[in-house]
Design a binder for these strands. Structure first.
Lengths: 192, 192
DNA sequence: TATATTTATTATCAAAAGATAATTTTTCAA
DNA sequence: TTGAAAAATTATCTTTTGATAATAAATATA
């Protein structure tokens, strides 16, 4: 199971057998059921996550409505803002599917980086990449209207679009489920 | 002038006198006139920036329209995506005001980090912070409608709201200048 | 398989945004 | 200071989205 983590890390830096052993023995792997909550609004996050299988969504509760802002799938890391800032979380993290997740904590991560210093260069690279991704995501969100955003999502994130119920996607696209339904109809009418 | 850079760095890590000297002699400071273009669509970025004074905007050209996606002011760094990925830029960087900017390049940055290794921990921290900011920015953009976004901008970025022409702000908020004008009117009518 | 629950679509009406053009206000330079 | 250019507002009309409720389709479960 933790092969996946090793594979992931190896994409960025090369690990010796000894280092692989260290990563293996460090890693705490947990299973979560669908709809289990990893983090709730108002809590202090003490953990970060690397998804081995399954899907997690982040959502805010606004006027009693859930507003999804991110979906995380296999091979993606979740570092809650609350984890980084030690402030109370403003959003929830909840499993959309049964999940298997590698869970990190401050102490364990520190220990790991001490034992394998070059991991910090991995983190540097990953953060840089994540920052770029977020930037592009935000730019796209501003530059395109809901219909264009939905088409882009279908194109670039086909997997996600199929795994996640439409009403969750709608909120992720910044619109209501009803509006997304209309958009889908409009598109299907245009393409015939 | 490069006091500003030293001050900024010192907020994250402490520098010895010798290290301050190194930063000083490394740094290349340039002046730009209003409307000068730092980076154009289709170009390969070879530089990154730290703004000492002035204001820079990032914009995409979409169907002949300029769509602003970011504004950068004093004490902010600009690391073009093109600079990180070595791919052609999809957006422009252009000065909204006369600017004084510290310019970094791959070679010079590498040299600097070699001479002052702890700078890499600064970059790590900065990237982490920038990632969080972007995440929150994107979340807010999704969670709020144009009027709410404008009000939030006024509240949290008063300085920017006053420095930047409304029609630039509009595109940054993801709406047209006409729509922003209507929003402003609506707000002013409500508050009396 | 039947039934309850969840998910997706449709209909109606109101509110907001886009497109376009005209006009007013502000800014800046000759 | 005045005249041109830039920026902001207003008006009109169309399109899209939001809110709400009803209905239909799909999925899960007893």
């Amino acid at each position: 199971m933790d092969e996946l983590i090793i594979n992931y890390i190896s994409k960025y830096i090369s690990l010796s057998d000894e280092e692989i052993r260290i990563v293996r023995e460090q890693n705490l792997i947990r299973q979560y059921k669908k709809n289990e909550v990893l983090l709730a609004e108002g809590e202090l996050a003490t953990e970060c996550y690397f998804i081995l299988s399954g899907c997690v969504r982040a959502y805010y509760l606004i006027d009693g409505e859930e507003r999804n802002t991110a979906f995380y799938i296999e091979n993606q890391t979740i570092t809650p803002i609350s984890y980084q800032t030690h402030s109370f979380s403003e959003y929830y993290l909840s499993c959309l599917e049964d999940c298997i997740i590698a869970v990190g904590s401050d102490e364990r991560n520190k220990e790991l980086v001490e034992k394998i210093p070059k991991l910090s260069s991995l983190i540097l690279q990953m953060n840089g990449e994540l920052l770029m991704q977020k930037t592009v995501e935000l730019d796209d969100f501003k530059n395109y209207n809901p219909e264009q955003r939905y088409l882009k999502l279908l194109e670039k994130n086909t997997d996600l679009a199929n795994r996640v119920p439409l009403y969750h996607l709608a909120s992720y696209l910044g619109i209501t489920q009803v509006s997304l339904s209309r958009i889908r109809k409009r598109i299907s009418l245009q393409h015939r």
